[in-house]
Design a protein around this nucleic acid. Structure first.
Lengths: 230, 230
DNA sequence: GTCATCATGTAAGCCGTTACATGATTGC
DNA sequence: GCAATCATGTAACGGCTTACATGATGAC
């Protein structure tokens, strides 16, 4: 799941670990605060698998403000780190530990990483709530048909959870918990229905780039997307 | 968290591991399906800590008079008969279980266990969603004041989650996720407000029909006078 | 020159899982 | 007798956390 989040973020911009973690924590709608202890190993795994690669320190929102003074150092540091990584095993620890290796290491997603991201979104079970939120957050890479499959699979999962109305002889508070659960379930299903409806509506029209007429903040899931990736 | 669930269930009835797991999985409102690999070690830990103890097989709240001498066999026989009766009117067979072999080990909660259960409910952070559902499910053991503290602490935690409105330029789907999150948050806060109101009124929370007075779920940031009995 | 922040990692451990091993009871 | 279910456990492993160790950068 952490890999899904990493790949999803890196698909938007090259980032180094520290920044990645910040954005992960800020990612709204999904409560995930990964720690460095899991983030860095995950990045190394992903790099080893070829899904991400170390890139020069330059993220997407890089303004061309003369980097001669400060960020040049960063560039050089990243360069050194990259060279060290390319040369061979990354932890040449031992006698001369990391004397030249500690620097910002920005990562970028590779083509294989994008494929992996795609697979992580469409595969896997629909039972994991946290993971599903992440999947939706990054599902712009999918085709409309794939998105529909994703949404409907989740909807089926949630619908299946409803029939667990055990005996009626419940403690007062337990009954309240059950009710809350059912309400949350119903709300989630309604949300999915909105998503599905919007997806269906957005997939059909040909050149309908709805922008001005869609000023109602009601459902706000308006699929103004409809990229050419159908 | 698994200990909370175990103690909570054992406080209602003596159970052996297998049955415990079934009830755990059936416990509505809380999606927890513990595996044997964690359940049995947890039971052993609890027994070692003195929070539960092996008892004679007897389900529903029975007098804590544990015969413990020769009637253990009789208890097992009674249990088997009861089980057989549940399945259908079968004949009862007499073969007594070997006291040296693998037998059912029913556990019951101890006084220390009840104290532990109480602590597990009132202590701990209010950030764990799953754990909170369990806490509410078993909060009948608390005093009304403790329950209010529990509910209001959770409410504060949820209210604090709302201000994380990061950058406004969000992808369509991410925005949808954020909206879902906010809706769920608002619904949960409203639920807590109902619980709190019911608790203050001294009545049982029968769900949505409890309150007609605080029907303003809109900007639920508004503090519902938590300055009462601190 | 020292403190806060940025930045990258490793080590130990918790909490839970799946897979495996064992045995008793019951139905056919 | 044999299989299904009930019942209890152990072993190996996985993911993620905290705590620790290291170092660079910039502000004051």
């Amino acid at each position: 799941m952490i890999e899904l989040a990493i790949l999803g973020l890196l698909d938007e911009a090259d980032l180094h670990g520290y920044e990645l973690r910040k954005r992960l924590g800020e990612l709204p709608g999904t409560r995930l605060a990964v720690s460095f202890g899991s983030l860095y190993p995950a990045l190394n795994r992903l790099e080893k698998a070829g899904h991400v690669k170390a890139v020069s320190e330059r993220a997407t929102p890089a303004p061309p403000l003369a980097p001669m003074s400060g960020s040049l150092v960063g560039e050089f540091a990243a360069y050194r780190a990259r060279r060290a990584a390319e040369r061979g095993e990354r932890g040449e620890r031992g006698a001369a530990p990391r004397s030249g290796g500690r620097a910002k290491k920005a990562y970028g997603i590779t083509d294989a990483g994008r494929r992996r991201l795609h697979d992580l979104i469409v595969e896997g079970d629909a039972t994991d709530d946290r993971a599903f939120a992440l999947k939706v957050a990054f599902c712009q890479h999918l085709t409309s048909a794939e998105r529909l499959t994703l949404f409907e699979g989740r909807r089926a999962e949630l619908a299946g959870r409803r029939r667990s109305a055990a005996p009626g002889r419940l403690d007062t508070y337990l009954r309240s918990v059950v009710e809350r659960d059912h309400e949350a379930l119903a709300a989630d299903i309604a949300w999915l229905d909105r998503l599905i409806a919007a997806e269906r509506a957005g997939a059909a029209p040909t050149g309908a780039s709805v922008t001005a007429s869609n000023a109602t903040p009601d459902s706000a899931v308006g699929p103004t997307d409809t990229g050419g990736t159908t």
